[in-house]
Simulated assay, not measured.
Amino acid sequence: MNAALKAHQRYRDDAILSAAPERLLTMLYDRLMLDIERGEMAQRGGDWDAANTQLQHAQSIVAELNASLTDAWDGSAQLRAVYAFLTQTLIGANVGRDPERTRSCLEIVAPLRDAWHTASESLAARRA
């Protein structure tokens, strides 16, 4: 690994380790979107290995998001149901090699990601 790549990796690692919880959440959602987009592109290109890798990583992120939910929040049960649906749909899209099902996951995740970004920005503004 060259020095520039090591420095970039170190910067990313430091950014994650020092991020506020709400920033970590938005980072997970951003990566989830990227994984689903990459998975869909790989499916459409017939690169099933790459699609599998991306969609499995997306499933791991959804599992992490689900595990981070607390039942103290009134909306947790509904969001948990969304995460369960996303997991099932990602698995089905991967096994069935169905880019349209993968695309449907993007349509679910995008507004959630946007909402969490808005909430994170609002919280940061209140702290400032």
Rank of each mutant, 00 (worst) to 15 (best):
R80T: 01
T87W: 07
Q54F: 15
R113Q: 10
Q78C: 07
T118S: 12
P111F: 10
A81N: 08
D35H: 13
L5D: 15
P21W: 05
Q43A: 07
G46F: 13
D98N: 12
S120E: 03
L79E: 01
L55Q: 05
E100V: 11
V62D: 08
Q59I: 04
L55G: 09
I91P: 02
E37F: 08
M33N: 15
A3L: 13
R80H: 13
I36H: 00
T102A: 12
L5W: 10
G75N: 06
A84G: 04
N2V: 05
R10I: 04
R127D: 14
V109F: 05
E40Y: 05
W73E: 14
R103E: 14
I108Q: 09
V109C: 06
L86P: 00
E121M: 09
V109G: 01
D71R: 14
R31C: 02
Q78V: 10
A124S: 10
N2K: 07
Q56V: 07
N2G: 15
S68T: 06
M1C: 07
I91M: 13
P21L: 04
E40R: 11
A115F: 04
D47L: 05
Q78N: 10
E121H: 12
R38F: 14
E22R: 01
L32P: 01
I16G: 00
R113H: 13
H8R: 12
A110C: 09
R97S: 10
T118W: 06
R126C: 07
E107T: 11
G92E: 09
R10N: 09
A110S: 14
Y11H: 13
L123N: 13
A19K: 02
R23H: 09
T89I: 11
V82F: 00
L17K: 11
L69Y: 08
Q54L: 01
A50C: 06
L123T: 07
G39V: 05
T102R: 03
L24P: 00
L25N: 09
A119M: 04
A81C: 03
W116M: 03
R126S: 12
M41K: 15
L32F: 01
A119N: 06
R103K: 15
A63L: 08
Y83I: 00
M1D: 11
Q59S: 14
D13I: 01
I36W: 05
A128S: 12
D47K: 12
W48Y: 15
R23F: 03
Q54C: 15
T53D: 15
Q54W: 13
L65A: 01
R103P: 01
R126L: 14
K6F: 05
S76G: 06
A50H: 08
P21N: 02
D71H: 14
T118A: 15
A58L: 02
S68R: 13
G45T: 02
E37W: 05
A84S: 08
L112E: 00
Q9F: 10
W48I: 15
D49L: 11
E22T: 02
D49G: 11
F85R: 08
A63R: 06
L69I: 02
L32K: 00
V95A: 15
A42D: 10
S76T: 09
Y11C: 03
I61D: 01
L32S: 03
D74S: 15
R103A: 14
V95F: 11
